[in-house]
Structures are given as C-alpha cells and as structure tokens.
C-alpha cells in the first residue's frame, strides 16, 4: 500500500487512491460548467497574475471584491494542494446572483468594506493584501458571527466540498452504482490493521 500522507505502512493489495486532481483542464471546464466563465479569460487578464486574473471575472461585484472573496474562501477552508480556481468555483456564482439580487450585492459589498476597513486599521492595507494567513484569520474571527461571514462560510460547505471536481483530492470516489459498487473494487481490502 502506498500512502502519500504517512509514508509506507505495509505493502499489499489495498486499492489506495493518490489524492491528486488529475482531470484535464478541458474536462475540468466542461464538468464544472465553467466553460463560459473562468474559461473565457479576456486577452487583458492573461497578463495578470493568476489570482488577479480570476478576480477580474467579477464583472458585477468588481475585481477587488472578487479577490477579497477568493482569499477569504481559501482562509475559511485552506487546502494548500488545491489551486485557487477550485475556490473560484464556489464563489464565482455570487457575481451573477448579485446582478439580480440587490440584497445579496449589498451584503457582500458592505461585508467586504467592513473587512477591508478592519484590515486597514490593523495592518494598513486591504484584507486581500494582508501578508499572512494568521493575520487575515485574526480579522475573520472578528466578523465570524456576522451575516456576511456566515453567508460565505455556509455556502462554502456545499459550494466547495460538494463540488465533485475537488473530491479526488480527498479520496472521495463519488457515485459508485454505475461501476457495480465496491463488491469487486476493494470494499474489504484494508491491509494495515494489526493482526488479531
């Protein structure tokens, strides 16, 4: 058994998954329904660093708000092996929703303004530019009971962890009935237990 988290424990036949996202860029865009969104980066945005290029896709809320949401999403559920574009999938829908929902646009606009104001007072720069995660998280603790943080955090639980595109990273295989279940695919192949 190979186990990337804990080194080698034992070697037998347990069907162990490498926790890597292996889908191609094209399959990723197709599967995530993002072909018309993040996929269609404008010529200008290609000149920007990756995070700024993603944030530039927020046409209603604006790039600065988009970047704040993106950094915030990562600070809420930080996974160092998962790239920004997967976080983007969870927050990108806010842009279209905010165009139709003024209450949501205000919640996000006010929330980001408050967070940035806190950041400027404490660190002299907006939240997304604050240098370390520890510093940014200290700001999030101050707003965590407010409606803005609760909304973003609550939506992330499903928007991020219920996105099938990230499941391979966690070793979650998803739907199995169409593959005949696990009866012949390792439902009972655990190999590291101490002998009774």
């Amino acid at each position: 058994m190979k186990d990337d988290q804990h080194g080698s424990l034992a070697t037998a036949d347990m069907r162990v998954l490498e926790k890597r996202i292996t889908v191609s860029r094209r399959a990723f865009l197709k599967g995530s329904g993002m072909a018309a969104g993040v996929g269609a980066l404008s010529a200008g945005s290609l000149m920007l660093p990756a995070r700024d290029a993603l944030a530039a896709e927020f046409t209603t809320l604006g790039a600065a708000t988009g970047k704040t949401l993106l950094v915030m999403a990562r600070d809420i559920f930080p996974h160092d092996k998962i790239s920004d574009r997967y976080y983007m999938l969870a927050i990108e829908p806010y842009d279209a929703k905010a165009a139709k929902d003024p209450a949501l646009a205000k919640l996000i606009g006010d929330g980001v303004a408050q967070l940035d104001a806190l950041a400027r007072t404490r660190f002299g720069k907006p939240y997304a530019e604050v240098d370390t995660e520890v510093q940014r998280v200290s700001l999030l603790y101050e707003i965590e009971h407010g409606a803005f943080f609760q909304k973003i955090k609550g939506d992330m639980v499903t928007g991020f962890y219920n996105n099938k595109a990230v499941w391979p990273f966690f070793g979650e295989e998803g739907s199995s009935w169409e593959k005949g279940g696990y009866i012949n695919r390792g439902f009972d192949d655990i190999d590291w237990l101490p002998k009774a």
Partner: peptide, 27 residues
C-alpha cells in the same frame, strides 16, 4: 461521504482545524 462529513463535523467551524481533518477524509 465527504459532503456530509464537511457539513456535520463541526457546524459553524472553519479554518485549518476543519480543513486539516477533512484532508484525511480517506483515513
């Protein structure tokens, strides 16, 4: 499964305390 684990593990919870645990979902 992972989605319900994320939802039920620590309702209201966030940060590395939560994400570091979920990275070990397969274990």
């Amino acid at each position: 499964h992972l989605p319900f684990t994320a939802a039920f593990m620590k309702p209201g919870g966030w940060g590395r305390e939560v994400s570091s645990a979920l990275e070990m979902y397969d274990h």
